[in-house]
Design a protein around this nucleic acid. Structure first.
Length: 194
DNA sequence: ATGCAGATCGTCT
DNA sequence: GACGATCTGCATC
């Protein structure tokens, strides 16, 4: 069952936490792959100096100003992509970064795309999971609430979740210590354990 | 287990 | 012109 847009129209940190356990589905000519979300981070736009939209509108972040439940995808370090989901009301540029998945199905295809058979390494990082799921800028702005090539379905509610500091944003003097990263407690597929 | 260099290019100053 | 919401391989402890 596809998660409706109203789910994403709420407070960004609530959405970030409640995305844990939900299922990301990617369908291409090669087949269908699924992963359960085990790690997310909230990026709170104008009130978050780590957010791409901290300084307002630009071409890169334009989809963040549209409706919730859309894919905000960007390229990082010239070779990886990162997948985010837009949240909140229209006009509020906030997102949730998907940082890690637990592979659920289509594992053979993920392994082929990633060039490794090692299950814990297939989707344990934002760049890795985009590669495993063939997510790139062609999906920029895609609606995750409809029955398309990239969508989100209800999964299983995790027993216990945890909040921690976000990864790789030490440059953000104001918000680097905020506990805006969420994980499924004890899960083996998160990107960084602490 | 920890650390560092290199890859590689879109975005912003 | 500089740098990044990353990942990998290789070196060292």
């Amino acid at each position: 069952m596809i998660i409706p847009r109203e789910f994403y129209e709420r407070d960004t940190l609530t959405v970030a936490r409640e995305l844990l356990g939900q299922i990301l589905v990617r369908e291409t000519d090669e087949g269908i792959v699924r992963g359960s979300i085990v790690e997310t981070e909230g990026y709170l736009g104008l009130r978050d100096d780590a957010a791409h939209s901290y300084k307002g509108k630009s071409d890169r972040v334009r989809v963040q100003y549209g409706p919730a439940g859309a894919a905000y995808i960007y390229m990082i370090y010239g070779m990886y992509h990162c997948l985010n989901i837009t949240t909140g009301p229209e006009g509020v540029p906030e997102v949730v970064l998907i940082r890690a998945l637990e592979p659920v199905s289509g594992i053979g295809l993920m392994a082929k795309r990633r060039g490794t058979e090692k299950l814990p390494q297939l989707c344990s990082g934002p760049g890795k999971l985009c590669r495993a799921m063939a997510v790139d800028k062609a999906l920029y702005g895609a609606d995750l609430c409809s029955d398309g090539p990239l969508r989100l379905e209800y999964g299983k509610t995790p027993a216990e979740t945890a909040a921690s500091k976000r990864i790789g944003i030490d440059y953000a003097a104001l918000c680097r210590d905020k506990l805006w990263r969420f994980t499924i407690a004890g899960n083996q597929y998160v990107s960084v354990r602490r």
